[in-house]
Amino acid sequence: MDDVDIHLVRRAKRGEIDAFETIVRNYQDFVYRTAYGVTQHHSDAKDVAQETFVKVFLSVKNLKEERTFPTWIARITARTALDWIEKHRHIPQSNVALERLASNKNESQAADARIDLQRGMNSLSPEHRMVLVLRDIQGFEYEDISNILEIPIGTVRSRIHNARLQLRRELLSSEGG
């Protein structure tokens, strides 16, 4: 985090709405990508992102160290996304868009690979999706993921390893099938 971001967080902690709006603009893609990585559904990820920013707005004044803001917002996003999955587990995820894309013969191999990857990610548990998103998409270090998810670093390593193995099996089976 640079000094400008730290200053924004300090201003937001004081209740300055324009500073918070800037934080939202600066972090909205990060929050959405993290939420989408877990939910694997656009509208759910938008809802999780919105809920995350409400939580951040209500609790930013309690943040002790401004430099920890990226990890702190990642933790809120992770918890919110996992809670969302838990609350909405009974609602079947629609793969209509995926099926439509898969049936279109004009789609490129890159689109097919994205579809396979999304299906593979959907096959993972929310906990496994979360560690992969935080590590491989958002680029957090193992220790940061441990802090974000509040789990031991050994559990982080194990989940990442197992998630990658499962994802690899899913992707290989989709190639062969």
Rank of each mutant, 00 (worst) to 15 (best):
N95Y: 01
P70R: 02
A19N: 02
N106A: 15
F30I: 00
T39V: 10
R75P: 01
L167M: 02
F20K: 04
V96M: 08
I148L: 02
L172R: 06
L101S: 10
N104W: 09
G37P: 15
F57N: 08
L8F: 09
Q28M: 13
L171N: 12
D112A: 14
S173Q: 12
E66V: 06
S103T: 07
V9I: 09
D116H: 07
R159I: 05
Q28T: 14
L98H: 10
A35G: 08
L149N: 08
R14N: 06
A49Q: 05
G37Q: 13
I17C: 03
I137V: 12
F20D: 01
W72A: 00
V48M: 10
I17Q: 11
Q50G: 12
I160G: 06
E99Y: 10
I148R: 05
G139D: 14
F57K: 10
K105H: 13
T22W: 04
G120P: 04
P70G: 07
V133F: 11
Q166Y: 05
A102I: 04
A111F: 08
E107D: 01
Q28Y: 13
P126I: 12
L63M: 00
P70K: 01
L172V: 07
R168N: 13
Q166K: 14
I73C: 05
R157A: 14
L132K: 05
V31M: 01
D136E: 12
I153V: 15
F69N: 00
I137C: 03
H90T: 11
N62T: 04
K64H: 02
D116C: 01
A78R: 02
S125T: 14
N162D: 09
L58V: 12
I148M: 08
H90Q: 11
V38C: 11
A35L: 02
P70T: 03
H88K: 06
H90C: 07
R11D: 01
R100E: 10
R168M: 12
A110I: 11
E65P: 00
A35E: 03
A111W: 01
T155C: 04
Q93A: 10
A102H: 02
V9A: 01
N95I: 06
D29I: 09
G177L: 04
A35Y: 05
G37M: 13
I137F: 07
L117P: 02
S103C: 05
G154S: 13
R10V: 07
M1E: 04
E175L: 15
L132W: 09
Q109N: 14
A97H: 14
T155F: 00
I23V: 00
D5H: 05
R100D: 03
E143T: 11
K87Y: 13
D5I: 03
L132Q: 07
I91T: 08
P152F: 04
P152C: 02
T77G: 08
G177C: 02
V48R: 06
F140W: 08
R159H: 08
S158M: 08
S43F: 15
F53V: 05
V4F: 15
K46M: 14
M130Q: 05
L132E: 04
